[in-house]
């Protein structure tokens, strides 16, 4: 009754997450260590399958606290995909962060997240709240 897309072992089936088409990919590990990849409709699908087996990565999107902003939270993301295994630790790191408004889209919120060499950047502008009274 449940869906389990992960087949353990050398042969793996997976859904490509690169675009909304969601191609069903299959990766077979050859004896010589070469990967045989089928089911993709574009180059990026093939690359996704290879990375998914060798070093799966995801873009992390979350929020951080903002001081003096018009809203209490700022949406942020990693500038590039980070290793999947680092998602939880990245969330812990960002949970402690509090930044000052104003912020502009693309501003670096945290440089070199967990020594990945990848920055965490702002996903939107956040104006400073105007002091009333």
């Amino acid at each position: 009754m449940t869906i389990d897309g992960k087949t353990k072992g050398n042969n793996r089936k997976m859904t490509c997450i690169t675009c909304p088409t969601g191609c069903q990919l299959e990766v077979r590990g050859g004896a010589d260590g070469e990967l045989e990849i089928t089911g993709f409709q574009c180059r990026r699908g093939e690359e996704y399958a290879r990375n998914e087996v060798l070093n799966p990565k995801r873009v992390l999107t979350t929020t951080v606290k903002v001081r003096n902003g018009v809203l209490p939270l700022l949406p942020v993301r990693t500038a590039k995909a980070i290793p999947k295994g680092l998602l939880e630790r990245s969330m812990d790191t960002l949970a402690d962060l509090e930044i000052q408004a104003p912020v502009r889209t693309g501003d670096v919120i945290l440089a070199n997240l967990l020594d990945t060499g990848i920055d965490v950047i702002a996903s939107r502008d956040m104006e400073k709240v105007s002091n009333v009274g």
């Binding site: 869906i3 897309g5 997976m14 859904t15 490509c16 675009c19």
Partner: peptide
């Protein structure tokens, strides 16, 4: 939902 969201939101 989209197949990619089944993969990256549930299976992950």
């Amino acid at each position: 939902g989209l197949a990619r969201n089944i993969a990256q939101c549930l299976e992950d």
